[in-house]
Computed example of a mutant assay.
Amino acid sequence: MPADLPPLNLLPDPLPYESRLESRAPEQVDLVVIHCTELPDLKTAREFGESVLYQESGTGNSGHFYVDRDGSVHQYIQPRYVAHHTRGYNPRSIGIELVNTGRYPNWLDSRHQAMDEPYTALQITALIRLLQELSAQYPRLQFIAGHEDLDTTRVPASDDPSLEVARKRDPGPQFPWGDVLAAIRLVRLQAAP
Rank of each mutant, 00 (worst) to 15 (best):
G102S: 04
V73C: 15
S72M: 08
P6G: 04
L11K: 08
E18Y: 10
P139S: 06
I184T: 08
Q174T: 09
P171F: 06
N106S: 14
G49A: 12
R188H: 00
Q132N: 11
R140M: 03
E148F: 02
P7I: 01
E148A: 14
I144C: 05
T44M: 13
V29K: 03
D170N: 03
N61C: 13
I184V: 14
S158V: 01
A126I: 01
A83K: 02
H112A: 15
L122T: 06
G71I: 03
M1D: 08
Q123D: 09
G60I: 09
H112T: 10
T37C: 07
V99T: 05
Y104N: 05
P156E: 12
P2A: 10
N61W: 15
H112D: 10
R188N: 00
T101F: 06
D30W: 08
A182D: 15
P193V: 06
I128W: 04
L134D: 00
A126F: 07
M115E: 14
P16L: 02
H74M: 07
L150P: 11
K43A: 14
L42N: 03
D109H: 15
A192R: 14
A182H: 10
A183Q: 14
I77D: 10
R188Y: 00
L39N: 08
Y76G: 12
T86D: 09
D149K: 12
P118W: 05
L98Y: 02
I184F: 08
Y54F: 15
A166G: 01
A157F: 02
R129Y: 05
D68P: 04
R80P: 01
Q190R: 13
L21V: 02
A25H: 13
H74Q: 12
A157P: 05
R20H: 15
A136Y: 00
D159T: 10
V82F: 10
L163E: 13
R129W: 01
T101L: 13
E56K: 11
